[in-house]
Design a protein around this nucleic acid. Sequence first.
DNA 1: AGTATGACTCATC
DNA 2: AGATGAGCCATAC
Length: 133
Amino acid sequence: MKSVDRKSPRNTPVIDHAKILRVIRSIPRGVVVAYGEIAERAGCRGRARLIGRVLAESPTADLPWHRVLRADGRIAFPPGSRSFREQVRRLAAEGILVVRGRVKLDAHGWDRNLDAALWAPPSGGAARRKRRK
DNA sequence: AGTATGACTCATC
DNA sequence: AGATGAGCCATAC
């Protein structure tokens, strides 16, 4: 049997490539999600980099790649690059506003509490998601 | 076999 | 808010 280091937080025995793609495909329209979160949902916690790699290698057709952002809500491509602009365009087409290469995760994040977003005062933005550990 | 390079993330400073 | 270092993984050279 494979010896897996159980002391490590990242003890995924196998990298489920198909599962990663499945998770990405299941991102609802109008919603964005971070690489790391995809990794977590695909059973590869801590392997956000792998998600980016899988995405880069996979055919973009039939994949909502534009809904995948960095953990802080910024687009992963270099600002102004072709892919960058394309992603902004696709996001805008879904009603997701991109300001200076960034999306407000409080409003569009997959794991975010929409109620909190709706409760947020127009001026303040007091409703913030509690950081889970 | 060692280094460098990304569609990454987190803690710290 | 930017910089840095560490951790992470697959490729490329």
